[in-house]
Write a protein that binds this DNA or RNA. Structure first.
Length: 165
DNA sequence: TCAACCTGGTAGG
DNA sequence: CCTACCAGGTTGA
């Protein structure tokens, strides 16, 4: 496992890579913890350094509300089969679009697993790039967000999604 | 087995 | 608008 910090206009994100790809992305925790990530070094496999570079670009674009031109490979193997289904469905939601938890449940063939979908979204290891913020509650409500609801609002606003009425 | 969830729908103020 | 309640799939303890 390799860990690196990524500086963005929204703070310092932390990334974790396995030999199969990006496996986790953490929101900035605290302004004083700028040393959390180990800077990439020559000791890193060439492939992983390339993933990090792609992730930097993708994160900057996603934070600006745009579809990343390129994404790193994701290692979602830490999740259960159900969670992986949900997470993979997230990738297909374009910026500016949004689904409800119920619609996402139906999309993966489990129309009644609405609450479980919420749980899987909450367990999303790669927020922002795996756009769980584009899943809203029914009736135009925001729903929850483990990274903090202000993040969800901010990300949606940058994509031009209008909330409520 | 059980409680906790980023839910959704219905029923009643 | 609000609160209450329950059916419900999945997960982790």
């Amino acid at each position: 496992m390799w860990t690196a910090a990524i500086q963005t206009s929204d703070g310092v994100f932390t990334t974790h890579f396995s030999e199969d790809g990006l496996c986790a992305l953490d929101f900035p925790v605290d302004a004083r913890i700028d040393t959390i990530g180990v800077p990439p070094s020559d000791a890193w496999p060439r492939e992983v350094r390339a993933w990090l570079a792609v992730t930097c670009q993708a994160l900057a674009q996603a934070l600006a509300g745009r579809q990343p031109a390129q994404l790193p490979p994701f290692d979602l193997s830490a999740g259960t089969a159900f969670q992986q289904q949900v997470w993979q469905a997230l990738v297909r939601i374009a910026p500016g679009r949004h689904l409800t938890y119920g619609q996402l449940a139906a999309a993966i063939g489990r129309p009644k697993a609405v609450r479980a979908v919420g749980g899987a979204c909450g367990a999303n290891p790669i927020p922002v790039l795996l756009p769980c913020h584009r899943v809203l509650a029914a009736g135009g409500n925001l729903g929850g967000f483990s990274g903090g609801l202000d993040w969800k609002r901010r990300l949606l606003a940058r994509e031009g999604v209008l909330l409520n009425h």
